[in-house]
Design a protein around this nucleic acid. Structure first.
Length: 112
DNA sequence: CAGCTGACGCATA
DNA sequence: GTATGCGCCAGCT
C-alpha cells in the first residue's frame, strides 16, 4: 500500500489515541515514534488542517510549553481552545492550565 | 537542482 | 521573560 509516509500515519494513530481531556506535545510524539524531530509531527498535523477525515483530535496536541501553537489551522483562533475546554481541559488564552497534569504520554496508553 | 518555510524543541544571551 | 540561533525532516516554489 502506498503509505504517504509511515511516520505520518503513526502520528495520526497516536493522536487519535489521546484520551479525552488530555493533551500531548509534538516532541512527545516525535520521541515516541523516534521521528527525531518535533517538526515532523507539526508538519503532519499541519497537512491535516482543513481536512481531517479521520477526525484526528489535533487540538489535543500542543507544543512542549502547553501552548496552542496550531490554533490558526482550525480556522478560528478560538476553535482549538474551545475544543479542549469542551473536553475538560482548562485553557487560558492559548495556553493549557496545569499542563503537567493534563499532559498525556503515548507510552502511558501502552503501559495502561 | 537550490532555497525557503513550517502547528517544534532546546540552548544561550 | 523576551530574543536569537541551531538542528531536524519533509514539502513546496
Amino acid at each position: 500500500m502506498k503509505t504517504p509516509s509511515d511516520y505520518q500515519q503513526s502520528i495520526y494513530d497516536v493522536v487519535s489515541l489521546i484520551p479525552k481531556g488530555r493533551v500531548t506535545s509534538y516532541g512527545a510524539i516525535a520521541q515516541f515514534l523516534s521521528l527525531g524531530s518535533a517538526r515532523i509531527v507539526g508538519w503532519a498535523l499541519n497537512r491535516l488542517s482543513g481536512n481531517n477525515p479521520r477526525q484526528i483530535p489535533a487540538h489535543r496536541v500542543v507544543n512542549a510549553k502547553g501552548v496552542l501553537t496550531g490554533w490558526r489551522a482550525f480556522g478560528s483562533p478560538n476553535t482549538m481552545a474551545s475544543l479542549l475546554q469542551s473536553e475538560g481541559v482548562v485553557v487560558e488564552g492559548n495556553r493549557v492550565v496545569d499542563f503537567a497534569s493534563t499532559f498525556w504520554h503515548p507510552e502511558e496508553l501502552v503501559e495502561e
